[in-house]
Design a protein around this nucleic acid. Sequence first.
DNA 1: TGGCGAACTTAGCATCTCATGG
DNA 2: CCATGAGATGCTAAGTTCGCCA
Length: 910
Amino acid sequence: MASDSSDDDMPIARANGRLSSSKISRTEDIALDKSMSKPSGMAGLSIRNGPIENGEMDLDSPSTNGSKRKSRESIIKVDYKDESESDGEPLAKRQRSKKVQESDSDDEPMVKARGKKLPPSYKETALPQSSSDEQPLGVKLAKKKADIERKGELEAKAIRAKEAKAKATPKKAIKNESDDDLPLASSHKRQANGSTAKRKSTVVKKDESDSDAPISKKSKAASASAKGKRVSSAKDTKDTKKGKSKEPSDEDEEEEFEWWNAPKREDDSIKWNTLEHNGVLFAPEYQPLPKNVKMYYDGKPVTLSPEAEEVATFWASMMTAASTHHLDNPIFRKNFFADFSDFIKKYGAKDASGNKIDIKSFDLCDFSKIAEYWAAKNEAKKAMTKEEKAAAKAEKDALEAPYLHCTWDGRKQKVGNFRVEPPSLFRGRGEHPKTGKVKTRVLPEQITINIGKGAKIPTPPAGHKWKAVQHDQKATWLAMWQENINGAYKYVMLGAASDVKGQSDYKKFEKARELKKHIDKIRRDYTKDLKSEVMADRQRATAMYLIDKLALRAGNEKDTENEADTVGCCSLKYEHISLQPPDQVTFDFLGKDSIRYNETARVDPQVFKNLKLFKKAPKTDGDDLFDRLNTSQLNKHLNSYMPGLTAKVFRTYNASHTMSELLKELGKDPRSRGTIAEKVKLYNDCNRKVAILCNHKRTVGAGHEQQMQKLGDRIKGLRYQKWRTKKMILDLDATQKKKKGAAYFVRDEDLDDEWVKEHQAFLVDELRTKIQKKFEKDNEKLKANKERVMPEKELKERLHAVKDLEARFKKENKTGKVEAEGRGASVEKFLSSIDKIDERIRVLETQAEDRDGNKEVALSTSKINYIDPRLTVVFSKKFDVPIEKFFSKTLRDKFRWAIKSVEDAEDWEF
DNA sequence: TGGCGAACTTAGCATCTCATGG
DNA sequence: CCATGAGATGCTAAGTTCGCCA
């Protein structure tokens, strides 16, 4: 390769349209520099580049290095007859070409890119989001981030130093360094023997004295040793701990195996030695609808074959759900109808007189009767008595019982998703081309079972057999099948609380911690490479910069014909970034799950310059920004710094490291010495920052806007009440006006007359319904007691209060005064009730603030996947907040290893 | 060296449940 | 004390990574 000429024919990575030249000539580089050096924003036009830029779009220098870049111009492949799935040519993977245009306007109809949620109409309007976080976010956070990064680098150095020392003195380094190389070791291993160690059931020999399998206290020595561990010298010290460890008391009757205190295994490619389980739980068979519940076609009842009817119920059941946005999505509708039609063709549909009929138009299909039936059934379920409910639950539990657990190397472990996914409509996210298709029922014949050799093979349902039964000790799954829509593999694996999952979680975080030691070198290197004259290297460095600083995902290529069009770092396209000189970049693209990433960040000038270069003409919409880079190249490079290092580790590292720093800072906040609630809030604030870093969002529920409004109204109402109370003071004692100052008694401006009227009406209304309800209820009670019910007259009587209130307001509005109300009214009393109101207002306000802050940020994802749980445990100890405040029951289970392993190590650091 | 199969983690939405406050 | 709604849990789609193969 080398020569430029080759580049065009030799698409390095994904040739998707135009390529950049493989080298950056010096002249070109300089030209770019020049064009940038003038900070005079807008004017930054370089001499040769001409006055391009509009600040927004790229401003590339077309000229300069005339280096042949023949650029494959119009690679806009028109091609794509249709499927051609099998892109015969090695060239690009399937490209989206055609979609290019639409896609970037990204407001297609039914897309739901978060924020832009559903209906196209709202979507545009909405998005305060984009406006709100415009500059601020990225730029603001930038500084803080920079600080944190700097710390990261310093740490790296410090760690190495410390480590060097520690090596010399291999003492009880308890959990720190010492143990963190261990995992490493294992990952090296993995590389090393990776494929070679293919032989399946190799028994792991425990080499060095498995005597040092000290571990788990009353460990079931048997199973422990069965696990075959090899300790490397580091027979940690943890023994001390185990000595003292009180009995785990855990709910588990059984002794718990504390693998985190056990020596590391050398060969972790063998996942188990013995494995027993009961297979999977199939979805219940379809229960046909009663004869009188039918779909209607063109107003007439239709008798569907059970197969088709089942599909109809998939749709109908979604009609009753809270949000029907899928059903409004044209793609969903189209795909559904296509599949539904196929079912009808295949299995038939008849009219009332038993004649076969055609279903040609979806618009004529009416599922509402089925939906009603469905809803009624749900209602009935809800209305069941306590006993009935309990009975139903008992039945369900009994059914599930056999599948709940498996036995893994002799230990009982929770299984995760033992239920085979029931048939349904595929709910692809975003603009998924296949969303709405029918996901068919999975038969035993499609399921492969993975189980220990000696174990009893689960019996398939009567009359059926498994697709296969295997005994792969390198696999952690118990059963597997492929789904019909995308051919995706589905696995039944252990639950998050299981040992294997815990172990890999632990390894993940240890790997991220390991990255700390290399981060400074990595940063130094890529900073240097940002100027590389080799385009591929420069792109890689730039991508690394983005992954490191902005926590972007790696960004594999995707099959745009069959999947939603989303991107990550390496797959960013021309239209996904816009540059604002001198150093701001705005990202706007759909990431995983079609969640929109829309941030503006300030970047290193060299990065800015590079991005400009990568957008250089003739590249245009639809072209890859990083046309000479893909994730394997990137990961291969990363791997050279540290075994096992890949792009995703940066996300973990960034999240945990950030959290760590934020929590440290909390120590300075006086509120960290406040109430538990305050401390929890502080923690959550940190959590939120991490979630924002990772762009973890959630849909702001349809009702949320209203809820917010409601909250706001309640606050306003309170302020109104506060004002009224003040006026009452005046009513009692006019001299207060002087004492307090007239301003004190002025009504807040936003509580204008109009609003007040409305609010009064609301209060009046509220009072009325309250009285009515009370009345009805009282009567019910009387009735139940067989007593005489109260006459309507009584109600009228009671409703006088409403009239009174109305009159009162009227008078107030006219006179501008408020009569003191309540018994024993006194200035003091009013003052104290004002205080109370103030208090309530404050509570509501923080609540509102919190809710608003959370409305589109999901804290859970980062908590579950990215933030080292030990950070939370340590925080909890240090600030004396029960761990329950941070981890729910399931999370405590999942993070058992973390909770136990830093139990008494308040000084543990990420 | 890129494409693909496979395996496992990450992700948001749907649904359930239980605490809370009207 | 029951109805709500927030938070917990369940579900499964959508990513990343790795190894193998041609």
